[in-house]
């Protein structure tokens, strides 16, 4: 378990933990939902930071690989990126790792990735297995330059699946329940902006 994960877990405890005796089994309390939203957004921001590092041409290969590992830990196994552009409406599908590798291999001298200060978090909906699912939407600005010349620029909308699951852990012999957030499939679509 890495340090960052422990930090996130700590945030989750502070924000959303409660004793088993008072916890309703099947519902997400509205106040708790807000805390879960914050945790989800935190993970999405972490993903954003990792994407910036992976895409940065000055990041050494070893460091990029290490960051890819960390980024992959945010996701549920088998998560995919579904990518479409304005020129091509069909969605192309990549495993998360493959997407990161393609990002790292982009043929520009310099890559700049920024995030707009606009996001939207959906309600959490319960799925048949009892877990909750939601979608966080964010927008990313990408610029690839060769020399001083801007070679490519786009703004993409990223709709990120978040899975929310109630888990248990033992602390000092006491069972503590907490809500954990993990990322899932991401739909990446180019915007006309």
């Amino acid at each position: 378990m890495n340090r960052r994960y422990i930090q996130l877990l700590a945030i989750a405890f502070i924000a959303v933990f409660t004793s088993t005796a008072v916890m309703a089994q099947n519902a997400v309390d509205p106040n708790r939902e807000k805390a879960i939203d914050s945790l989800a957004l935190e993970k999405v921001k972490d993903l954003g930071k990792y994407i910036k590092i992976i895409g940065n041409k000055s990041t050494p290969y070893n460091e990029a690989t290490r960051v890819m590992d960390r980024a992959e830990e945010l996701f549920a196994p088998g998560s995919e990126m579904g990518v479409s552009s304005l020129a091509k409406e069909e969605i192309e599908y990549y495993k998360v790792r493959e997407y990161f590798r393609r990002l790292m291999a982009l043929n520009y001298d310099k890559v700049t990735i920024e995030w707009y200060d606009v996001h939207y978090i959906s309600d959490l909906e319960r799925q048949p297995d009892g877990r909750y699912v939601g979608v966080v939407t964010i927008y990313q600005k990408f610029e690839g330059t060769n020399g001083d010349k801007l070679a490519y620029k786009d703004t993409t909308k990223k709709d990120i699946t978040i899975y929310v699951e109630k888990k248990e852990t033992q602390i000092a012999g006491r069972t503590i329940e907490f809500w954990d957030v993990i990322l899932g499939d991401i739909r990446v679509s180019e915007t006309s902006i």
Binding site: E125, R126, Q127, P128, D129, Y132
Partner: peptide, 11 residues
């Protein structure tokens, strides 16, 4: 596609 109730939630 339609939404339907199933198990503990919807699909």
């Amino acid at each position: 596609m339609q939404i339907q109730e199933e198990g503990l939630g919807y699909e």
